[in-house]
Nucleic acid binder design. Structure first.
Length: 287
DNA sequence: CGGTTTTGACCGGCGC
DNA sequence: GCGCCGGTCAAAACCG
């Protein structure tokens, strides 16, 4: 997992392509990280502030008009895999294109397959990852409240990072969404959160201060520790449409407009990107 | 007591 | 084939 280009994605070209072109990138709390990372983003349009919190996201995708499957719980995982496979041009796993109607992709857990060795199943289910996106948050809190409840199922020390990465799964037994949380080794104040999959249910609400406005992602409050909302299946779609508009209208983006210089500036050429490799679509990066 | 967290073990993928 | 590494499992511990 040390491929400097995209360490975490090397096992599946479909996944690589997905993340390279379709990842959504969230950023909030300051407006400058992308430029500091030298990504090709249009700061003026991609980062608007709502109630003090940048609410926009960025992504590049050739599938922005593709409806994001909304789905019931029973099919959400499959729907997510559809998203993946449709994006994929490839692949080593041609069968993936039909995976949406086959087995539950959540069972693609390598470990679960390993625990109950069923080679056939294992082979048939090469790791099919669901759509992911990530965002960075400047926060003291690792596990940011996002309206969902998460159960931690693992923690690992990651190479070239002094901070462990935590793995969470949505507590809804029918929801397959996972997230990973780790702190930036460059700037420990930055939390990098990566979501994988789509929730098939509503938020559970916040114990303090209400519930995410599930149908108005631009209206979430400026609660300091709130990550971008992921409350409903439509959100992805909205994000993608928004980004499609932005990207098609202004593919090249100026550097900078930094109003906050807190962030460490990991170089794109850094050999170890860690999660950053997941969150930065290549098309957003400068050459 | 039920749900969550911790943590060591295990497995698969990948590079060499 | 081997070692490294990321990701996951699952038992035990913990907590409200």
């Amino acid at each position: 997992m040390n491929d400097p280009k995209d360490p975490d994605l090397s096992d599946n070209s479909a996944w690589r392509e997905l993340t390279a072109s379709d990842s959504d990138f969230f950023y909030r709390d300051t407006s400058t990280i992308l430029s500091e990372f030298a990504w090709n983003l249009h700061a003026s349009s991609s980062f608007t502030q709502t109630a003090g919190v940048p609410s926009s996201i960025t992504t590049t995708t050739s599938k922005t008009d593709q409806p994001i499957p909304t789905s019931s719980c029973s099919s959400s995982a499959a729907a997510a895999s559809v998203t993946v496979t449709e994006v994929s041009t490839n692949v080593n796993n041609p069968s993936a294109a039909t995976s949406s109607s086959s087995e539950d992709p959540t069972e693609n857990s390598t470990a679960s397959a390993a625990k109950t060795p069923k080679k056939e199943k294992k082979k048939a289910q090469k790791r099919i990852r669901q759509q992911r996106f990530a965002f960075m948050t400047k926060s003291d809190v690792d596990n940011l409240e996002d309206g969902y409840r998460w159960r931690k199922y693992g923690q690992k020390a990651v190479k070239n990072s002094s901070f462990p990465r935590s793995y969470y799964r949505c507590t809804n037994s029918r929801c397959t969404v996972k997230k990973r949380v780790e702190r930036s080794s460059e700037d420990p104040s930055i939390v990098i959160t990566t979501y994988e999959g789509q929730h098939c249910h509503q938020t559970v609400g916040f114990p303090r201060g209400g519930i995410f406005p599930a149908h108005d992602p631009h209206n979430f409050t400026s609660h300091h520790h709130l990550p971008p909302p992921l409350p409903n299946p439509y959100y992805y779609q909205e994000l993608l449409h928004q980004l499609h508009r932005e990207i098609t209208s202004s593919p090249q983006l100026p550097q900078s407009t930094t109003d906050d210089g807190h962030f460490a500036v990991p170089s794109i050429n850094q050999p170890e990107e860690g999660l950053l490799g997941d969150i930065v679509p290549q098309t957003m990066r400068n050459p």
